[in-house]
Design a binder for these strands. Sequence first.
DNA 1: GTCTATACGGTGATAGAC
DNA 2: GTCTATCACCGTATAGAC
Lengths: 199, 199
Amino acid sequence: MGSTRDNIIEATRGLLELQGYYATGLNQIIEQSGAPRGSLYHYFPEGKEELTAEAVRWAGLAILDRIRQSLAEVEDPAEAVRAFVLQLALHVNASSCRGGAPITAVALETSGSSDRLNRACRDAYHSWQGAVRDKLASGGYESERASRLATHVIATIEGAVVLARTDRDVEALERVAEELAGYLRWAKSDNKGREGRDG
Amino acid sequence: MGSTRDNIIEATRGLLELQGYYATGLNQIIEQSGAPRGSLYHYFPEGKEELTAEAVRWAGLAILDRIRQSLAEVEDPAEAVRAFVLQLALHVNASSCRGGAPITAVALETSGSSDRLNRACRDAYHSWQGAVRDKLASGGYESERASRLATHVIATIEGAVVLARTDRDVEALERVAEELAGYLRWAKSDNKGREGRDG
DNA sequence: GTCTATACGGTGATAGAC
DNA sequence: GTCTATCACCGTATAGAC
C-alpha cells in the first residue's frame, strides 16, 4: 500500500471519476482515503485545485499505461483497438456503469474556470492520442493519417463511455469497438482519408 | 421573448452547458435569467433537480431540431453528417470553445446520483441517435446497421466536443467530421459491419 | 406571482495544540 | 505529520408579506 499522500490522490481520482469535481468534497476524500484530516493541506498546500490536478495527472498516466499495455498485446492496430475498447467495457461494467471516464467530467466542469485543471486534462488526452497514434504509425499507417485517426479513436471512446454511463449499459462501447475496428481496417488499405469525387 | 418560466429554463440550459450541474447555482440562474427570485420555486416546486431536468429536456429537443434540420439539408447521409459536425464546430468556436455539449457534464455528474436527471439525459441521447439512424436508414443503410452507426456517430461527436473544449480548439471536431464522412461512405458500400475471417 | 428575509447544512480553508 | 476546533462563506430551500 502507498503513502498517505498516495492514498489521498487515489481516493480523489476515484471520486472524480464517479462524480466530477464540484460534487466531490474534501470531507468525502478524507473519509474515503482514511487519511488524517490534517494531512490534506500538509501535502497539498494550495488546496482542492492542486490535489485535483495531481489526481488528474495520476489518472492520465494510469490510463496511458493501460492503453499502451493493451495495444501492445495485439499486433494488428485495428484488432488492438477493438480489444482495448472491449476491455474498457468490462471495466465500465464492473463499476455498474458509473465509472470509466476518469477526467471527462472534470474537463467539462473546469475548462472555462481553471487553467491549471484544464492543462492537466489536456495533457492526459494528448498522451492518450499519442499512444494510439504511435501504435497506428508502427502498424503501417502514414504518420499524419495516424494522428488524425488517433483523435477520432479517443473521441469515439470518450463519447461511448458517456453514452454507456448514461444508459447504464455498455452496449454503446461494444458497438464502437466493432465500428472502430472495421474503420481502422478499412483506413489502412485506403489511407488517403479523403475521397476523390470520381471514386 | 418568452415567459418568465422559459427565461429561467433557458438561462439554466446555458449555464449547464458551460459549467455542469453542481457548479451552477440557483443564484446564478436568477441573476442570468433576470427572473424574479420568488418565481423559481413557484414554477419548479421541487427545486433545482426539477428545473435541471426541464432544462436538459429543453436542450435535448433543441439539439434534436438542429440535427434533423442540418441532416435534411444534404441528401447524402455521409455528407450530411459532415456538414452537421462542421456546423457544430462553428457553434463551439463561437462560444470560445466553452460550450457545445449541453448535457454531457450533467450526464456524467448525475448518472450515479439522480435517476430523474439520468433519464432526462438518456432520452436526449436516444433521440439524437434516432435522428441519425433515420437519416442513414432513409439513405439506404440497412436498418440494424444504421442503428449501430448512429451510436457510433453520436459517441464520436460527443467525445470530439470534449476534446475541443479541453484543447480550446475545434480541430478535433474538424478531424472527426472528415473521418466520420469517410467512414459512413465506406460503410454504405460494405454494409456488413463485421468482416468474414475468410476476407 | 413576486419579493424579502432567513433557516440550515455543507463547503473549502485556517489556526494552533500535540 | 497529525489532529481538533473553528472560521467565514455559499449552497438550497422555506416562510410569510404583499
